[in-house]
Design a protein around this nucleic acid. Structure first.
Lengths: 169, 169
DNA sequence: GTAGTATGAATGAACG
DNA sequence: CGTTCATTCATACTAC
């Protein structure tokens, strides 16, 4: 999206500066930054608020270029990966013999459909078209409930107009 | 990545229906779908109504599997993230180092980029037509033209205490 | 140079 | 709507 793709040119490690230079691309935290971040995380701050993120970012900028979003991502990733690791461990160390399906979520997430896995990707020609014309004045939650319960969007095989010049709205 | 790096990196993974394994998991929009959605969003449709969502979904199904809820979530996420990003980037600046000239912010970003949303060769016939009266608002409104980059504080000249050590939280 | 790994970034989905 | 979770993509780094 228009993520802003804020660019940043970072050095290569505090020590480094290997001359190789300013690689523009993704943020590469300095060891000091990582140290502080890790310290914060271990101190119990696993999900900083937006406000905290900004403060942290601000302070860490002393050590080098950094943006709020970097801090944000750092915490998100750090937490996620720790959890992920933990989950893996518990999954193996615990539980009965790990079945072939150790993943219970990865399968078709919800009430999805499309059971076709390794065969001709043929689309079902269900014509279960859209649910009744909505009643205006429905709340967001109503909408969400509606959508999440929707099991399949038919995607009719016979191509619709295709003229979607966005004028269909 | 090549100097393009604008917009989004198209994932090589073509979503299902194509040949072979239609990985059923989460929706992976095709670039066409993203393009249309982005176009709609940019044209002012940031919170489509239920029926609009259905129509969009219906039309986009031409490009691949898609459900209404996907469209719903897409808009939710897109809007939320745009704000989030904005929030993260803004403030922090404060009046501390005064309002530098807008120009400076740009120069600070010397090597990179712009916030150009789609530097993609716009191929879709943008006949964006304002949706019917059911929702007339936004108008042009969009003037997020500022470079919201956090290149900000080049460290306020006189470096901050550096005594931070987590005490600033 | 290729393989493997660590991790930054992105985003679909969903929660409160 | 703001926030959080899970999964995946992309890339920096390391080892062979």
């Amino acid at each position: 999206m228009d993520d802003g793709m804020s660019g940043f040119c970072i050095k290569s490690r505090v020590d480094g500066s290997g001359g190789g230079g300013t690689k523009c691309g993704r943020w590469n935290p300095t060891s000091e930054q990582v140290k502080v971040l890790t310290g914060l995380f271990r101190s119990g701050l696993q999900t900083p608020s937006t406000d905290q993120i900004q403060k942290i970012s601000s302070q860490l900028s002393f050590y080098g270029m950094i943006e709020s979003k970097n801090v944000f991502y750092w915490f998100q990733n750090h937490k996620a990966r720790e959890r992920q690791k933990r989950r893996r461990v518990s999954s193996v160390a615990h539980e009965q013999h790990d079945q072939v399906h150790r993943e219970d979520k990865v399968s078709c997430a919800k009430h999805f459909v499309d059971v076709n896995q390794d065969s001709e990707p043929e689309r079902v020609i269900e014509t279960l078209q859209l649910f009744p014309l909505n009643s205006f004045n429905e709340s967001e939650s109503d909408k969400r409930r509606l959508f999440t319960n929707e099991c399949k969007e038919t995607h009719q095989t016979d191509h619709p107009p295709l003229d979607l010049r966005l004028s269909f709205l």
